[in-house]
């Protein structure tokens, strides 16, 4: 197959895999309502905690921003990392494997569709949160903010693609592991408080999840005064680290997908269901 044709197939696969995610959202509009309102319930509870203990209003902003970013982490866990497990359970994985296309294109399509739909949810949570709780934001550097956000997403979904490859080997463990990666990651990545509060070394370790760096950088750019006392790393350093993570995770995902697919094929796990 020549390169042009390969590229065309790759691109068509990306679009083809992203399509059901985007169109699914249009067909089940009520999902959007649930997926905006559910995180908002949690956000509201945490906002009221901060209000009850007399925290400065910027902390409401920390929670609202963290609450919006949970949508991406949940999407990475349940619609990227666990996706190949779901496909195995529903009998689609074999079809992916025999399809004359790149598995990386399938993962990128999943990520692209996921980013599009999740962004609408995150924007919904952020907008409602800011309006309902009157969050005082002060955007100091728009290009840096956009850059941090985009790099966070690329690195995060690169991690999701890597996890998807790892989860290929597993049965029900995949489900439980995704469950396990919720609250502990919300804790160590500082979704609801500045991650610096955990100490520098813990924050450094938690930076393996790109949202840790992304959230801290975005908070610095949106709440500069309040974050002066809680800054983990300078924004420039975090931007650099996110760029490195994006490249490394995508490369590792590519390698891991090949390795784990081959291993799952040899161990006969690609078609095992209900285990």
């Amino acid at each position: 197959m020549n390169l042009r044709r390969e590229m065309k197939t790759f691109l068509r696969t990306v679009i083809g895999r992203a399509y059901p995610r985007v169109i699914g959202m249009r067909r089940e509009k009520s999902w959007m309502l649930f997926e905006v309102l559910l995180p908002l319930l949690q956000v509201a509870a945490f906002v009221y905690i901060y209000q009850a203990i007399g925290a400065p209003p910027e902390f409401t902003g920390f929670v609202v921003l963290g609450g919006a970013m949970t949508a991406y982490w949940m999407n990475v866990l349940w619609s990227m990392a666990s996706q190949l497990y779901w496909e195995k359970e529903t009998g689609n994985l074999e079809l992916y494997i025999i399809a004359p296309t790149s598995r990386m294109a399938i993962l990128i399509g999943m990520a692209a569709g996921g980013i599009m739909t999740t962004t609408i949810r995150a924007v919904g949570v952020l907008t409602l949160g800011v309006l309902i709780f009157r969050v005082p934001m002060e955007v100091t550097d728009v290009p840096a903010l956009v850059g941090v956000f985009l790099l966070t997403l690329v690195a995060l979904y690169g991690l999701g693609m890597l996890l998807a490859s790892l989860f290929l080997l597993w049965g029900r463990q995949a489900w439980h592991l995704a469950n396990l990666l919720q609250e502990p990651v919300f804790l160590v990545s500082g979704f609801y408080f500045p991650v610096r509060a955990l100490g520098f070394l813990v924050a450094l370790g938690a930076s393996i999840v790109p949202i840790t760096l992304g959230l801290d950088a975005m908070r610095q750019l949106l709440f500069p005064q309040m974050m002066e006392g809680f800054r983990f790393l300078p924004v420039g350093t975090q931007l650099g680290a996110l760029a490195v993570q994006a490249v490394v995770f995508l490369f590792l995902a590519h390698r891991a997908l090949r390795y784990f697919e081959d291993r799952a094929r040899r161990e006969g796990r690609l078609t095992l269901r209900g285990l």
Binding site: A55, H176, N179, L180, E183, P184, F193, P194, A197
Partner: peptide, 22 residues
């Protein structure tokens, strides 16, 4: 470990929210 880590992590989120403000 699985059964304990999630709830303890949930509790610790609240603890750190308090610690940051207090």
């Amino acid at each position: 470990v699985y059964s304990v880590v999630r709830p303890v992590a949930g509790a610790l989120i609240l603890v750190f929210m308090y610690l940051v403000v207090a």
